[in-house]
Structures are given as structure tokens and as C-alpha cells.
Simulated assay, not measured.
Amino acid sequence: MSLPQPVPPSWKDLGKSSNDLLTKDYPFFGTSLEVKTRTPSGVAFKVAGLRDSKSQAINGDIEAKYSDPKNGLVFTETWTTSNILKSQLELENYLAKGLKLDFSTSLVPDSGSKSALVNLSYKQSGVHTRGALDVFKGPTFTTDAVFGRDGFLFGAEAAYNVTEGKISRYAAAIGYNAPEYAVTVHGLNNLNTFSASYYHRVSPDVEAGAKAVYDSKSTTSGVALEVGTKAYLDSAAFVKAKINNAGVLALGYTQTLRPGVKASFGLALDTQRLNDIAPVGPAHKVGASFTFEV
């Protein structure tokens, strides 16, 4: 008798370990600040801002989130400096175990532009399926499914334009997840773009990963390749480094100063243009991120 299979990741989380390793904790596009607080009644507030080093523009948002874990309810309201109002209602395990309903809307009062997205996901042993209806765009219905067994993962996604009556996008993926490593291959953009990612926890203190992307429709030939690593210096600090085939080297350092206070610093260097010493310019970038959580 076979053992129960774990719930596989969702379609968007296939290859997440490698993507997180290569994209997160590199704040070299500017300076950002994030402050999180929580009230005794279960309301969490988050204020976030980013000063872009290239345009010098400052963008931010304020978010309020109410959670009722007993009933599987999460309600989030966000207001951005671009005057965009966002709302999200999540209900998980309320109608049935493993079923989650997510209703997201956005409104721009100045222009009257609006969007509404209805998401439905269902996960059980060995299967994770999702469906989404974009009410105002198309409308378009998107569905995806991931099946897992003994570490092997098989996934597919398709988008159907209701008005035009045709499939507008499809993709597929295959992968293998083990406790210490993961491999994922995607065929995206109607199987015109292919990506392969690899993640390996070398030891409790060291992680490594790589990603290769080939676009058959791109005007530039060849494969885009990126490799990176992460090393924990101690329980409160780690460093990250990555480099791509264009010669751009990125470095990141994150330090937990005290419980709830974290600082991250990032640097990107174009190794083919090391003579360009401008710290914030077309060749090299530097930035920092600070997070305060009460």
C-alpha cells in the first residue's frame, strides 16, 4: 500500500526555491523601508516605500490586513501612492477542506480604471489545482494543475479568452523535488520559452542554484544563464552572490540586528565595465532595504 502523497506546490511555486535564491535579498535598485505592526485584535498594518535609484521617484503603499484563522478568513486593503485602491478577500477551508476562495479588486479613482480577479484553488494529497477568472480583461479564464508523486511533479497551465472563444496561452512543466535539491523545467509562452532551474542545499549553511532560459522568439540568440549561492554566517546573518552570462555580478548581505529589525544591502557590478565607477549608474547599482516588525 502506497503512502499518502504530500500536497505539491502550486503552478506559480514550481521552481520557487531556485527563484527565491536568485531574486530575493538583492536590494540594489534603490532604498526601501518596510514597517510592520500588529494589533491585539488581529489587524496587521504594513507601510512600505521605495526610492528608485535610477528615476529618484519614491513609491509606497499602506496595507491593513485582518485575519481570522479560526474561520480561514483574511481581508486585506491597500492604498498606494499612485492612488490605487486594492482589496483582497481570502477564504480557506471554509466551504470544504483544501478549498480556497480569493477575490481581488483594484480601482484607480482618477481614471476609473478597475480590475477584478476571482481565484479558486483546491489542494489534496498529490494534487494542487487553481482557476482564475479575470472579469474585466477578456474576460479570461485561467486554470492550472500540478500533480505530484514520489517527488516527481507534472504541471500545466492554460488561459481561455471567453469573448474570442479560444485558448490564448498555455504552458507545461515537469520537475523533481527532494529534501536537499529540486529540478524544474518549464515550457512557457505557448512552449516558445523554455527554462530550467536547479536548487541544492549543499549543507545546513550553504545553498546553491542556477537557472537557464531560452526564448525561441527572441531576436538575440543563445541561452540566458544565471548561477548563485547563499551562505549563512551565523543565525542572524547571511550573504548571497550571483552572476549571469552577461557578466553582471550581484552581491547581497542581510543582517538581523535584533528581533523584528532586519537590514539588507545590495550591490550589482557589470564586470565588463568596471572602469565605470559611478555607484548609481548604467553599469553599477547599489541599494539598501530596512524592515521593522513589531
Rank of each mutant, 00 (worst) to 15 (best):
M1Y: 12
L3T: 12
P4T: 05
G15T: 00
T23L: 11
K24G: 10
F29N: 15
V35Q: 10
L50M: 13
L50H: 11
A57Q: 14
I58W: 05
N59H: 10
D61S: 15
I62S: 12
I62T: 11
A64V: 03
S67N: 09
K70P: 01
G72F: 03
T76E: 07
T81S: 07
S87I: 09
E90W: 07
E90L: 12
E90S: 13
E92K: 14
E92V: 13
E92Q: 12
P109R: 00
S113Y: 13
H128F: 10
T129I: 15
G138A: 06
F141G: 01
F141N: 06
T143Y: 14
G148D: 06
D150T: 10
L153K: 03
L153W: 00
A156H: 07
A158T: 11
A158F: 05
V162I: 15
A171L: 08
A173G: 07
G175R: 00
Y176A: 06
A178Y: 04
Y181V: 00
Y181S: 08
N189K: 15
T193V: 14
Y198L: 11
Y199I: 06
A210E: 00
A210Y: 00
A212F: 07
Y214N: 09
K217E: 15
T219V: 10
G222E: 03
E226I: 06
K230T: 08
Y232C: 09
S235G: 14
A236Q: 15
V239T: 09
K242P: 03
I243Q: 02
G247S: 01
V248T: 11
L251S: 05
G260I: 06
S264Q: 12
A268V: 06
L269Q: 01
R273L: 03
N275I: 02
V280N: 14
H284T: 06
K285R: 13
G287C: 06
G287D: 03
T291Q: 15
V294T: 15
